[in-house]
């Protein structure tokens, strides 16, 4: 008996690209990989997962463009795909693309991703648009708040992409240490979480009873997920 072959391209790491809809994920994907996925200025455009590779020095990474989503916890198919990939695809680095002009809503997703994995680079995109509308984001301050690298970018103009690549590479090789922000929940929730092992996300999932009967419990399926 032979095992099914792993037909993923041979790479040094898997990088997931997540973010709210219409934050320029596909533009970043195209710019990094040189592929030509269609980009459009409306939410919900990416309906399938695109994959491509890019190089940083001698390292080669597989970049996976996941569908845009506002949250990882509600039930839409995009959210399920993205969540499943983060939990079971075990990307070495997750890039969360955030719209600088709509930071608050984008951070909601960032905080959720940080509960699954700490190996996160936040790509603060469309800074030029935000600035034109009078919104300035302090990248250093945001980096400090989140505890993970934040890269300022304007992907349509091709700005910030080299730095993004560099940060991804450094994080994948363990050259950057992260200290991901943890959301403090109400005391009674925190108390229950304290008794649970595994990632904070899975503990919360268990607590919230998110798994559907018959599908196999989430916690069971992702017990071996890296912290």
């Amino acid at each position: 008996m032979t095992f099914p072959q792993d037909n993923r391209p041979k790479t040094d790491g898997v990088v997931a690209l997540v973010g709210n809809p219409n934050t320029g994920k596909s533009t970043i994907f195209n710019a990094l990989t040189g592929l030509k996925q269609h980009t459009g200025n409306w939410p919900g455009k990416t309906v399938s997962i695109a994959r491509g590779t890019f190089r940083v020095g001698a390292q080669k990474y597989l970049l996976v463009d996941l569908p845009g989503t506002y949250s990882l916890r509600a039930g839409s198919p995009e959210e399920k795909i993205t969540r499943d990939f983060l939990l079971s695809g075990r990307p070495h680095v997750t890039v969360v693309v955030a719209d600088a002009g709509r930071l608050e809503r984008n951070l909601y997703l960032v905080l959720q991703v940080l509960e699954i994995t700490g190996k996160v680079v936040v790509c603060l995109n469309m800074l030029d648009d935000a600035r034109r509308r009078g919104i300035c984001v302090d990248v250093r301050a945001l980096e400090e708040e989140l505890g993970v690298p934040v890269v300022a970018a304007a992907a349509r103009q091709g700005l910030g992409l080299q730095e993004l690549k560099g940060k991804i590479d450094a994080l994948a090789r363990g050259e950057i240490s992260v200290c991901p922000r943890r959301v403090k929940y109400d005391p009674d929730i925190e108390e229950q979480l304290a008794f649970m092992s595994g990632t904070r996300w899975l503990a919360l999932e268990a607590l919230l009873g998110q798994q559907k009967p018959g599908e196999g419990s989430w916690v069971e399926r992702f017990k071996y997920c890296p912290v």
Partner: peptide
């Protein structure tokens, strides 16, 4: 579903945090 209240509280906490961080990091001129 069942622990709807819990879910809501978790979402609310996430929101508060996101809002607080966004407020500290952005400046509207």
């Amino acid at each position: 579903k069942s622990p709807a209240d819990l879910q809501e509280r978790v979402a609310a906490a996430l929101f508060r945090e996101a809002e607080a961080i966004a407020n500290r990091a952005t400046k509207v001129t």
